[in-house]
């Protein structure tokens, strides 16, 4: 044990292996959870056939995806078409390295942890756009263009609302931001005002970055067939799909860490609180997905620039005033 803990390379490898596998398994079964959840909301059973209550459905889906014929469109840009799905996956998983899972459990304790996650996730647009362009399909291309426009716009309120916990916590290190919220002084609750508004804006902007309903216009199936995934089959489609789920999961983890006190909670602190909070946010995102309709592309941009950006700027200003005078 001490051999692993003393060697940073070994520690990184082991922590990375554990975190990545745990997240992949969670993501696979969160698809099962979402289908059950949606079924319950719509008064139908959801998956029931494979295993008890359909619990083995993700395994069956995986086997099916692996067996499918791998089709690449004739006029596609082959290299970029094949590169896009794994690249998206890598970028989503890379952000997990800096999370404080529990007191003292940080795989890579960077002093710019939050900035690291935000910069890595700002890159995720590139593989999404790449998939759309390389497919050589007009629907895929439109989806990719929408994704790029959406990501560039929502980056602004996302970063501004993430500035609020940075100002209140006084650090870019995620561990310090969590520590500043110890004993229930979560930024979503205290100080009243900037924190809670920034929390809502942060989660909405994250939904837009992860292309989830009501902001999934890059993939709008009623307009664009399947958007960027139109030409993808088999495991490549599976990777894009899974990366989207993982992105949502990482956003929930980040929301819980920045605004809901991370591993802090009543009783003993620890990883269980972080997981519980992020799972609640994750389920909330599914709830929104199965309740709301999709925004129209232009209304959605107007919402971003006319509402999200000014409100998040105001949050930053109020948080700064609070930090200096209170």
């Amino acid at each position: 044990m001490s051999v692993i803990l003393e060697n940073p390379w070994l520690l990184g490898a082991v922590a990375g292996f554990v975190v990545i596998n745990a997240m992949m398994v969670t993501a696979a079964w969160s698809i099962w959870f979402e289908r059950k959840f949606a079924g319950a909301m719509q008064n139908r059973p959801g998956p029931t056939q494979v295993g008890w209550a359909g619990l083995l459905q993700p395994v069956a889906d995986l086997l099916k995806l692996i067996q499918k014929e791998d089709i690449v469109p004739t006029n596609a840009d082959r290299a970029l078409f094949n590169l896009a799905p794994p690249l998206g996956m890598i970028l989503v998983l890379a952000g997990l390295a800096v999370f404080p899972w529990a007191p003292g459990w940080v795989p890579a304790d960077l002093d710019i942890g939050l900035l690291f996650i935000l910069s890595i996730s700002s890159l995720i647009t590139i593989p999404v756009w790449m998939a759309g362009w390389a497919s050589n399909n007009k629907y895929a291309l439109l989806g990719g263009m929408r994704a790029a426009a959406q990501a560039v716009s929502f980056e602004v309120p996302l970063l501004l609302s993430a500035l609020v916990p940075i100002i209140l916590g006084g650090s870019l290190r995620l561990g310090d931001i969590v520590a500043a919220q110890a004993d229930g002084r979560w930024f979503a609750l205290w100080p009243p005002g900037p924190g809670s508004v920034a929390f809502v804006l942060f989660m909405l902007a994250s939904l837009a970055e992860a292309n989830r309903i009501p902001f999934d216009i890059p993939e709008a199936e009623s307009e664009l067939v399947a958007g960027i995934t139109t030409e993808y089959v088999g495991m490549k489609f599976g990777l894009i799909y899974l990366a989207e789920y993982l992105h949502t999961a990482v956003s929930s983890l980040l929301g819980a860490t920045l605004f809901l006190g991370g591993w802090d909670g009543p009783g003993p602190d620890g990883i269980h609180w972080l997981l519980l909070k992020s799972f609640a946010l994750f389920a909330g995102i599914f709830w929104v997905r199965w309740t709301l309709l999709r925004y129209r592309a232009d209304q959605f941009m107007a919402l971003c620039w006319r509402v999200f950006v000014p409100v998040s700027l105001a949050c930053v200003a109020v948080a700064a005033v609070w930090r200096v005078y209170a």
């Binding site: 960077l110 002093d111 710019i112 900035l115 690291f116 935000l118 910069s119 890595i120 700002s122 890159l123 647009t125 590139i126 756009w129 362009w133 291309l141 263009m145 790029a148 426009a149 990501a151 560039v152 980056e155 970063l159």
Partner: peptide, 25 residues
């Protein structure tokens, strides 16, 4: 220079490159 590295990725790669991809098309 971790801060510089993160800002370089956030602004230049995440922002400018995305805008350039958009503009190219």
């Amino acid at each position: 220079a971790g801060f510089l590295a993160a800002i370089q990725i956030l602004l230049y790669t995440g922002g400018v490159i995305t805008l350039m991809l958009f503009a190219v098309l």
